[in-house]
Write a protein that binds this DNA or RNA. Structure first.
Lengths: 341, 341
DNA sequence: TTGAAAGCGCTAACAA
DNA sequence: TTGTTAGCGCTTTCAA
C-alpha cells in the first residue's frame, strides 16, 4: 500500500469541498453537480493521478468490490476455466477476486472463508463445497451472497450451478452398453462430494434400469478425485472375484489412474478393458488412448455462477434459482471398444 | 460484506476500552497487558464471534495483508503450480492473494495493476511482465514491493526469480547434437517476453559455439506462446528452402503445435523430424510422442518469489538479489531421435 | 447545487 | 498497565 492523492488533495486543488469531489467522481452523484465543477474536478483527479482508496470507501459503504473464490486446487485443470468464466463476468462488473485453495479439506475451507470475510468480500463463489458444509450454510444465512459451482451443498438453500451429472453417466452407460458391455464396474468419487455421490447414484439407477446385474463389489469408492485413487480403486476391483469388461470412472483423473494400473499389469485399454472418464479435461484428446468421457461446460458453469452472484450482491432479496443444471456432452474417443469374447 | 462484532462491542462486554481490546488481540501489544485482561478479552472475542475488519485496520495501518498476483492466463498449466508455490509462503505469512489474468496484454496488465493498487495490496508478484514494462517499473519506484517471476523486466531494478533459460537451451542443443542433428530450426517465443528472447539468444549463441550453420530462415518468431503459433511457425519453416532435421521450440505449447503441423502433413515425430519443448508442463509425459523438454521448477520459482516479496514487504529497505536463477533439468522423452539418413 | 459534519472500525501516540 | 484521543479516506445525510 502506498500513500497517494486523496479527495482532500483534489478538493484543495480545485477549491471545492471533498464531498463535492466525491460526488463529481461518482457517475450517479455527479448528476447533481454543475458540469463545470465535474469537469474541473475530474481533470484535476486525472492530472494528479488520483486512485480511489477502496479500503476507505469500503469501510464507509460496506462494499469492497471484491469477491472470494474457493477452489479445491488450482493445479487441477478442471478449475482454471471455471475461474476464467467467473472472471469474465466479475471483471466487467468491477469486481476483483481473492482466490484460495482448500485442497478439499473442510477445515482449510472454513479457515479460508474467514480469510475472505475478514477482507470484506461482497460475495463468495465456492467451487470447493462439500455435500455437508455447515459453515458455508451458516455464512450464507448471515446474508453473505454465496453460490456454489460444479458442486452443491445438500439440503441447503445455497444456490448452485452444476453439470448434469446424471445425464452424463446415462450417456456413458448407453455408450458402453451399445459397445456390448454388460459387466461394468464403477470407480466412484469421494462420498463427501456431491459430484461423487450424484454420479454413483446415477450409475446405480441407470444400470438397474438397463437390467444389468451389478454386484456390490462392482462399485469402489475413491477417497480423492485423483490418479492415485484411481489406481488404488482399480486394484481393488481386480482383486474381487467379479469379472468385468469396462470401468466407468467418476472423473477423468480416476480414469487415468485406472488405465495406468491396467497397463502396469499387462492389460491394454481398450482391448482388454474399456475405461471412461468425466469432465473432459484439457489434453485428454492427446493422451493414449484418447479418453472417452463427458464434457462439462467449465467456463460456462463459472460464468453463470458469477452472474447469479452479481445479481445477489446487487439485490440481496433477488430471486435466484436454487440449482442451475448445465447440459453435458458425450465425447467418444479410443478408450472404449467391444469386450473380448 | 456483513455487519459484525466490533472492538467496541467487546469493549462494552468486557468493561475495558477499545484500545485495550485491540491490544489484547494483538500478539505483540498484548504483552503490555495483564494476563487476566487478555484472557477476558480473548474469551469474549471468541464467544461473540469477533472477526477483525481488515478494511478498517488496513485504512489505519496502510497494510492490508493482501498481495496481487498478475498471471498471463491461469488456464495455461505453467502457472497454477507457480501460484501454489507463491501461496505456500504467503498463506503462512498471513497474506491472501488477489489473482488477475492479463492475457499477456500490456494494457490489460496496466489496468489490472490499478485494480490491485486501489485495493491496497501490500505487494505484487508479476508473472505477466513484459521485457519492457514501464508501468510496473513506475509502480515499483513508488515503493510498492514487486517481484517478477518466470520473466523479467529488462534494464530495470525490479527483482526477478527466473529459470535458467540459457542453460536449458544449451542442454537441448547438446542433446540434439548428440543425436546427430546438425540442421536445427528454432521456433522462438514472442519478442516482447524475456523468456522468448533469452531462449532465442541462447539458441543463437550456443549453435554458433557448436559450429553449426544456422541460416536466418532457421529462426521463426511466434507472436504468442501457444499451439496455434507453433503450427504457424512450423508452416513458415517448411515453406523456406532450408532443410532441417529438428525443431527446438521455445516452449512446450509451441512444440505441440509444431508436432500437430507435422502430423497433419504426413510427417512423423521423431522419425522424420525431432522436436523439443521447454517447461515440462503436466501431462506431457502422457502424450504421444512424449515430449523431450526442459523441466523448470514452477512451484519453487513461485515459492522463492513470494519469499522475496515478503522480505520486501516487511522491510522496504531490505536487500534482495536483483535476479535469482533456478536450475533446470533436461527431460528426455520420445520426441527426439536420430535424423533420417 | 454545494458545504458541513459525522462516522465506518481500527490502531497508535500520548497521557495518566 | 490502561484510557483518551485523533485520524486513516471515504460517503452520505442534513442543511443551506
Amino acid at each position: 500500500m502506498i500513500k497517494s492523492v486523496t479527495l482532500k488533495d483534489i478538493a484543495r486543488e480545485t477549491g471545492v469541498h471533498t464531498s463535492t469531489v466525491s460526488r463529481a467522481l461518482d457517475p450517479e452523484a455527479k448528476k447533481a453537480l454543475t458540469d463545470e465543477v465535474v469537469d474541473r474536478v475530474r481533470n484535476a483527479a486525472q492530472r494528479m493521478g488520483y486512485r480511489r482508496n477502496r479500503l476507505a470507501s469500503g469501510l464507509r459503504t460496506s462494499r469492497t468490490m471484491t469477491v472470494g473464490l474457493l477452489i479445491p486446487d488450482i493445479t487441477n485443470t478442471l478449475f482454471p476455466p471455471i475461474v476464467r468464466g467467473v472472471e469474465s463476468i466479475l471483471e466487467n462488473a468491477g469486481y476483483a477476486s481473492i482466490i484460495v485453495n482448500t485442497d478439499n479439506d473442510i477445515d482449510r475451507e472454513n479457515k479460508l472463508v474467514e480469510v475472505l470475510l475478514e477482507r470484506g468480500v461482497d460475495g463468495i463463489i465456492d467451487a470447493a463445497a462439500h455435500r455437508s458444509d455447515p459453515r458455508i450454510v451458516e455464512v450464507a444465512q448471515e446474508n453473505v451472497p454465496i453460490v456454489t459451482v460444479n458442486r452443491l451443498i445438500e439440503g441447503a438453500t445455497v444456490p448452485s450451478v452444476v453439470n448434469d451429472d446424471a445425464e452424463g453417466i446415462r450417456m456413458l452407460l448407453d455408450h458402453l452398453y451399445a459397445a456390448s458391455h454388460r459387466n461394468i464396474a464403477h470407480i466412484a468419487g469421494p462420498k463427501t462430494l456431491s459430484t461423487g455421490v450424484a454420479r454413483r447414484l446415477a450409475f446405480e439407477r441407470t444400470t438397474k434400469k438397463m437390467g444389468l446385474q451389478i454386484p456390490n463389489q462392482a462399485v469402489v469408492h475413491a477417497t480423492r478425485f485423483d490418479e492415485d485413487a484411481g489406481w488404488l480403486c482399480a486394484e481393488t476391483l481386480f482383486q474381487s472375484n467379479w469379472k468385468f469388461t469396462a470401468i466407468l470412472c467418476a472423473n477423468d483423473r480416476l480414469a487415468i489412474g485406472a488405465i495406468d494400473y491396467l497397463e502396469k499389469h499387462g492389460m491394454k485399454c481398450p482391448k482388454d478393458i474399456s475405461v471412461t472418464g468425466f469432465n473432459d479435461l484439457p489434453f485428454l484428446d492427446r493422451i493414449s488412448p484418447g479418453l472417452t468421457t463427458v464434457r462439462v461446460e467449465q467456463f460456462e458453469v463459472g460464468r453463470l455462477s458469477a452472474e447469479l452472484l452479481v445479481k445477489m450482491m446487487k439485490d440481496p432479496s433477488a430471486e435466484v434459482p436454487p440449482t442451475t443444471v448445465l447440459p453435458v456432452q458425450l465425447i467418444e474417443r479410443a478408450s472404449v471398444a467391444a469386450p473380448k469374447t
